[in-house]
């Protein structure tokens, strides 16, 4: 993998807008995948310089898991079943949440926390100059790979709690669960990205990204723990339900694939909207150098 010619901004010197993709769809996907791998490779190189940081992230991940388990221990000391969830089923959800949190914290969050800075400091110029989609670049350029340890930690908890609950998931159930997680990630990304895109207008509010954190935190509980407006909010607006509750329900065999029917259009609409908003916002960007 290499950043030959086509990655350099030099080829497009003078053009401010990203060049449209001239090649076909498949080639574009391959090119963007290669680029992302390149981002990951530079991050791995950086990572080896900060080994202590990796160690503390592991400790943090374990501590977070322990605290999540403790929260459910506290909740379930008064009852064996909460809103249809047993203790072990709730722990499966805690495991699933940790995995999703691992993906979000490793690949999505570091970018969302950076965007308002690009805008405030005028660094967005460099993003717009490059011959790739600027949305792709600002959304995936940064990685915080140590956070990915949360994925195996969460998987461990999920498997442990699943076997303790006596769950025997079918292949279909696991596939459906995977699809729900994927949709959930796309939706979370879209909503979060749209929030930070507002930084183009609200330059003074440098922490719009922070608005998202407590609601994403709500994903550590099954959505059925909430009622009325909060459940609707967590299913459709800040769709953590797709990322954590639905996948675990699918593994438990309590949810079929039918929610995909509105999940896929919802995710697609979110992605499209985020793209439209981004393009609209970029036009409002008062650059630092031009």
């Amino acid at each position: 993998m290499g950043c030959t010619g086509s990655c350099g901004a030099g080829d497009y010197a003078g053009t401010v807008r990203p060049a449209p993709e001239a090649d076909g769809g498949g080639a574009a996907v391959r090119r963007y995948a290669r680029l992302w791998l390149r981002f990951a490779a530079t991050e791995v190189a950086r990572l080896t310089e900060y080994r202590l940081n990796f160690a503390t992230t592991v400790v943090e991940g374990v501590a977070q898991t322990a605290l999540a388990v403790l929260t459910f221990v506290v909740l379930f000391q008064f009852t064996d079943e909460l809103a249809g969830w047993s203790r072990m089923e709730a722990l499966m959800l805690a495991g699933c949440y940790r995995m999703v949190d691992g993906v979000v914290a490793a690949a999505i969050a570091p970018n969302m926390y950076s965007i308002s800075g690009y805008i405030r400091r005028g660094e967005m110029d460099f993003m717009l100059l490059r011959p790739v989609s600027s949305q792709f670049l600002v959304s995936f350029r940064r990685l915080n790979l140590p956070e990915a340890v949360n994925i195996p930690i969460g998987l461990g908890l999920l498997l442990y709690a699943g076997s303790a609950a006596g769950v025997q998931p079918t292949v279909g159930g696991i596939l459906t669960a995977g699809l729900y997680v994927l949709l959930g990630l796309v939706m979370l990304y879209s909503v979060w990205f749209m929030t930070v895109t507002c930084s183009f207008w609200l330059v003074q509010v440098d922490n719009l990204d922070a608005l998202f954190a407590p609601l994403f935190d709500a994903g550590r509980y099954p959505v059925s723990f909430f009622s009325g407006w909060m459940r609707a909010l967590l299913t459709f607006v800040i769709p953590v339900a797709f990322a954590t509750t639905f996948p675990v329900e699918a593994m438990l065999g309590e949810r079929d694939a039918s929610a995909l029917l509105f999940g896929v259009p919802l995710a697609a609409a979110g992605l499209l909207l985020s793209h439209l908003l981004w393009n609209y916002a970029v036009r409002h960007y008062s650059s630092a150098s031009s």
Partner: peptide, 11 residues
């Protein structure tokens, strides 16, 4: 920076 602090308060 009151706008930013309002976001923190919402959290």
């Amino acid at each position: 920076y009151r706008g930013a602090f309002l976001v923190y308060m919402l959290n």
